[in-house]
Nucleic acid binder design. Structure first.
Lengths: 230, 230
DNA sequence: TTGACAAGCGGACGCGCGTCCACTACAGTG
DNA sequence: CACTGTAGTGGACGCGCGTCCGCTTGTCAA
């Protein structure tokens, strides 16, 4: 298992596939990459993600800053690389569960289950995801939404919505848009705000999200509906 | 018109109200503040918000960086101060419209109208709001959600939702949470992503949001409903 | 008017990020 | 094995932010 089409930095940069197709990554370079990842993981665990600087990571890994930035264009990318194993695991589980429940469960229920898993994932990696989000500012605005992780999650949600529409379970006009909306719900910034400032539990957030999904269900009688074009 | 309880930096810092209650802001300080605001507004218009540095603003205003930071703790606050007039105008219009339509229009329709206005506001000030959002990173995470602007907008939405529930129009369990969700929909990052990458028009976004609100309507027959307490 | 005190000022400074480029050393070639 | 091109390296550097602290100046009381 575990093959989501080049979502993750495969081995490194040149070629993921054939063993003798291109000047593949140098041996020493690969070793340094391991050192970097190990050092970053250790420091992040020890002192928290925010408190560690790129310079420290470079020093701890015994490489220069240039080398560090060659592989990970910013702290966010490095974070994603560090929790890469978790991400793959998450994706594998989801993929497995979805294909298992394929015909047996309604699409909307699968969506609900997926969102539950997603909340758990966010809850478990808030600090990391927070840093990732921070990097997507200024010049890099929108980088996260354009990145493979969001694309994948969005794809899953949109596909489930489309299936739900096809089976008549749900009445959704614009699945792509709606998927964005559902995911905006677990945006790290909002999630942290609700957890920290509002004092919500993950369960409460989950419940709210579930009710939102319930609102997508097709209605028995479209009587007092919205007027379509004013 | 135009009195929302200290949402904006009133005159400056010490006291908004009585004329002889505290060592009110010095005259020269006030003048400098005007210079800063004018310089910032000009530079932002000329070269775009992102491209202007705090140092340049200070220089253009003929003050030191320390002075600049004394009043506006970061670029985001400065941005908000520059578009303060627009914000007040927005709030006044909304307040007026809401009190005008008070008994005449259904709460859900008022909500819909408000969200339309909100989208227009975001569309008009994306660049500024983007910078504001950028500042709410790292240490300052959640600053925007804690700030007066979000609080106010959230209050409006939550109140309308509560009214809709009271009149039986809508079936919403958790109005505060739902307000957060509706607003997450027009989060600057997401909004820009949908506008730029997905190529959505504001109208399309508005339509999607409207449908989301429609999903909150109370159902005629609660048949295949969610099980309330598992 | 004078004195005193705090509010206000401003620029030097430190920090972290990310870039840049002269140098190194690995991996194919003859 | 010597040769060579090129991926890879690392640290000096520049930038923008935000802070800090010694100096200035308005304001109020005597």
């Amino acid at each position: 298992m575990s093959h989501h089409p080049k979502l993750h930095t495969p081995p490194a940069a040149p070629r993921p596939g054939h063993p003798s197709s291109r000047p593949r990554e140098r041996r020493d370079a690969a070793e340094r990459r391991q050192r970097i990842l190990a050092a970053a993981a250790r420091l992040f665990m020890e002192r928290g993600v925010e408190a560690v600087t790129m310079e420290e990571i470079a020093r701890a890994a015994g490489v220069g800053k240039g080398t560090l930035y060659r592989r990970y264009s910013d702290k966010g990318q490095l974070c994603l690389a560090v929790i890469d194993a978790c991400i793959r695991h998450f994706q594998d589980e989801v993929t497995a569960e979805l294909s298992r429940a394929d015909g047996a469960t309604s699409a909307l229920d699968q969506l609900d289950a997926f969102l539950g898993r997603l909340i758990a994932f966010v809850e478990a990696h808030t600090e990391w995801l927070g840093v990732v989000a921070d990097q997507a500012a200024g010049e890099r605005r929108g980088a996260f939404h354009c990145g493979p992780l969001y694309q994948w999650v969005h794809g899953v949600v949109a596909r489930l919505l489309e299936r739900a529409v096809a089976t008549g379970e749900a009445a959704v006009e614009d699945c792509v848009y709606t998927a964005d909306v559902l995911l905006a719900t677990v945006d790290v910034d909002l999630y942290l705000f609700q957890r920290r400032e509002r004092g919500y539990t993950p369960e409460r957030i989950r419940a709210g999200l579930r009710r939102l999904v319930a609102g997508l269900r097709a209605r028995p009688a479209p009587e007092g509906r919205e007027r379509a074009s004013p």
